[in-house]
């Protein structure tokens, strides 16, 4: 871009901003507008979910499609989730080591890290990467099926696209995320071990033994339930966005993109709700 054009552009932007200000589009209004749109969107997703729940028990159940989807969704994100968890486990250990050792509590690191990974970091990282990789894929796939009328073609042939496409995909994401979380936890531990053993003399057996010994069912079960909920939300949001994609290539892109944005947000909301419920029971 030439400097002149750049200048033109910035005056244009200034102009747009001024115009918006003149229309009294204050930041508050913009934020309220966005929040409203968000709530409306969430409302229709809830509606879609209810329709889904009505269909989930109505035959035919597409077992083969479900297994295929579990396999592909798990497989697709295996590498990224593994590496990210490994790195985060490592970084987390390296970050806390100086403080812990200055307090003389460095021997607590394996147990501390393992609890944070199991309770929070594992599920969160897995779900966020899964949303980016698999959620966007589902949004785009169903979106393009929608705009090329393949979904209509299924309904028209007297089959239920909700069963074949949505139930199988949401089922798959709900199963795949908890499984991937276990895998992410393990790789997080491994990353942490490598960081830790560069500072301290410790065998892998001893590290893992210490890390795992503090994890109880009270940590693991809620974490897996939470993960399943993340998976459910990701699958549901992506399927909804795909089924409601607007015409054209842009519609497909937007379906994929919105899937990721909304489900990532929901992941944090669910996380917040679950931590409240958890603390209520303990």
């Amino acid at each position: 871009m030439t400097p002149q054009k750049c200048g033109e552009n910035s005056t244009q932007i200034k102009f747009i901003i001024l115009e918006k200000l003149e229309k009294k589009e204050t930041i508050q209004k913009i934020l309220i507008g966005q929040a409203k749109q968000y709530l409306e969107n969430t409302g229709s997703i809830v509606n879609f979910t209810l329709r889904f729940l009505k269909n989930i028990f109505s035959p035919p159940f597409e077992w083969r499609e479900l297994l295929k989807q579990v396999y592909f969704s798990g497989y697709k994100s295996l590498f990224f989730i593994g590496t990210t968890s490994f790195i985060v486990g490592m970084v987390f250990t390296m970050q806390s080591y100086p403080t812990m050792s200055s307090l003389g509590t460095e021997s607590w690191i394996p147990t501390m890290i393992s609890l944070s990974i199991v309770r929070e970091i594992g599920p969160l990282i897995t779900a966020l990467i899964f949303a980016g990789k698999v959620g966007s894929g589902i949004g785009a796939e169903l979106g393009s099926m929608k705009v090329t009328e393949q979904i209509d073609a299924m309904s028209v042939s007297g089959t239920k696209p909700m069963n074949f496409l949505v139930v199988s995909r949401v089922g798959a994401t709900t199963i795949a995320v908890p499984l991937l979380v276990l895998y992410a936890d393990a790789l997080g531990f491994l990353g942490s071990y490598f960081a830790f053993q560069s500072k301290e003399e410790i065998t892998m057996y001893f590290f893992f033994n210490q890390a795992i010994s503090v994890v109880t069912y009270v940590d693991l079960i809620p974490s897996l339930i939470k993960s399943a909920m993340f998976g459910f939300a990701i699958g549901m949001v992506a399927s909804y966005q795909g089924f409601h994609a607007e015409q054209g290539t842009q519609g497909v892109g937007r379906a994929a993109n919105t899937s990721v944005v909304i489900s990532s947000f929901l992941i944090f909301v669910i996380d917040l709700i679950m931590v409240q419920i958890n603390s209520f029971f303990l």
Binding site: M145, T148, E149, Q150, D152, A153, M154, S155, V156, S157, G158, K160
Partner: peptide, 18 residues
Amino acid sequence: NELRRTVGYLFQGGALYD
């Protein structure tokens, strides 16, 4: 659904499951 099983619809774009 019953009705749709007796009516065939050829979509303008084909709509094959790709």
